[in-house]
Design a protein around this nucleic acid. Structure first.
Length: 436
DNA sequence: TCTGGGGTCCTAGGACCC
DNA sequence: TCTGGGGTCCTAGGACCC
């Protein structure tokens, strides 16, 4: 904790909903809910008009609709949000090079790292900043907190929200924090709150009665140490301008539960390929592939495997995801499926896959009967299939197979091949190469 | 019609190695 | 001949954040 109030936290008010109201005047002054509009959607942001009816972030859209049927329910326009966010982040970088965005609508700024920061004139700086943000974004408002630490700056930005600011005078941190509920401390969620409640702790002052060791018995040593310090406003975490990405993932909750393994396999492979594209777009590769499944009853499992080296190859990630899904009992169907990769590196072990990732260069698919014949199955047999990406997934009474084409150059031109290492192929078929 | 999607961090047990 | 100790990696799950 430093001796001056030089860490700033900015939070845009009801951000997504405010962008919608800005861009559509008919929505101004009215309840607006941005979030998933489908049967399984949840609220991302509610305008203050909608909050009066009890609509909150993370609430199911169904409940939001029940509480506020006359609200405008919108799916969200992320390009517009990204643009507005960019304008605000650029304004913050005029204050200091050390800006740490937490999301599209929130960031910390280390004012002391700026050129001519004058602690005596923080209030001026804050009001100028807030006015600029509103002007440059054509009407969005921001709440701002400034304090001697990240903890107190973030808490301060809440105090006069929306469209307000609060500066915590150095030396008063513990007094400001003491009367607050423990939930005001970032990182204290429902589970920790309940454990603390059983100890008779409701406010931060209550929390200060316990030693770190006492707390450790109930919330674990790491959380305990952190809580002990934060309760005393003892926080020296630096503002970090750039943080390393640790994982990349894609997931989807289905409108209705999916039971068809063939279809789910196709979806998992497609997700893996999207993850690969995002890896490549960021110049990254990853070693650990994780499959996430959520059953009809919301029970959630993850299955992961670590490759011998990092890859950004869609085919490899897809085959790995498929293998993980193959090992999973799908039970009564899935409501969610996801694929992610972690163990990221900024290089690719490319000795095994020195060829570039094949583009989505589809040959016309052979007929269903032809595909069955190539697999050694009888034409006309009941074969289901799902086309996707650069191949297809199909199955029959004989089992399930996922097959992808890859294109390789040969003296006679491009040849479509099945990957020789595809375990699905080795099970039955001897076909390893097919002329286009 | 309960419960998104994209993340980070922590815990805990087992394998494995020295 | 009766059971080490520490370090690291891997996997699974859970809490939490916006």
């Amino acid at each position: 904790m430093r001796s001056t109030a030089s860490i700033l936290h900015l939070d845009l008010d009801a951000f997504f909903a405010s962008v919608e109201q800005r861009d559509k005047p008919s929505l101004r002054g009215k309840p607006v809910v941005v979030g998933g509009v489908g049967a399984r959607g949840v609220v991302s942001t509610a305008s203050y008009e909608a909050r009066k009816f009890g609509v909150r972030s993370a609430m199911s859209s169904a409940e939001a609709r029940a509480r506020c049927p006359h609200a405008a329910f919108l799916g969200g326009r992320f390009d517009a949000y990204r643009e507005a966010s960019g304008i605000v982040m650029a304004r913050l970088r005029e204050l200091s090079p050390v800006v740490q965005p937490l999301s599209l609508d929130e960031a910390f700024v280390d004012l002391a790292a700026g050129d001519d920061f004058d602690p005596e004139r923080v209030e001026e700086l804050v009001e100028e900043l807030r006015a600029d943000v509103t002007r440059r974004t054509h009407g969005l408002t921001a709440s701002v907190g400034v304090a001697s630490s990240k903890l107190m700056a973030k808490i301060a930005s809440e105090i006069n929200k929306p469209d307000g600011a609060f500066i915590v005078q150095p030396g008063t941190e513990a007094d400001v924090l003491g009367p607050m509920q423990v939930t005001a401390i970032p990182g204290v969620g429902p589970a920790t709150t309940e454990r603390l409640r059983r100890l008779g702790v409701a406010t931060v002052e209550d929390l200060r009665r316990f030693t770190a060791d006492d707390l450790g018995a109930h919330v674990g040593p790491t959380t305990a140490t952190s809580l002990y310090r934060l309760a005393r406003a003892d926080d020296d975490r630096p503002v970090e301008a750039s943080r390393e990405t640790k994982s990349i993932s894609v997931e989807d909750t289905f409108e209705t539960n999916l039971v068809d393994r063939v279809q789910l396999t196709a979806i998992a492979e497609q997700m893996a390929r999207r993850v690969a594209q995002r890896l490549r777009a960021n110049g990254l590769s990853g070693r650990t592939v994780t499959l996430k499944v959520r059953y009809h009853d919301f029970e959630t499992h993850t299955r992961s495997t670590t490759l011998t080296g990092p890859t950004d190859h869609g085919g490899v990630l897809a085959a790995t995801a498929r293998r993980l899904l193959d090992a999973e009992d799908l039970g009564g169907g899935l409501r969610l499926l996801g694929v992610g990769v972690s163990g990221l590196a900024d290089w690719v072990q490319d000795d095994l896959f020195s060829e570039p990732e094949p583009e989505e260069d589809l040959v016309p698919l052979p007929s269903r009967d032809e595909r069955a014949r190539r697999r050694g199955w009888s034409p006309g047999q009941d074969v289901t299939h799902t086309e996707h990406g650069d191949g297809w997934v199909w199955g029959s009474g004989l089992g399930l197979v996922t097959v992808r084409f890859e294109t390789r150059e040969s003296p006679s031109g491009p040849v479509k091949t099945f990957p020789a290492d595809d375990p699905a192929l080795s099970a039955r078929a001897s076909v390893s190469s097919v002329e286009p």
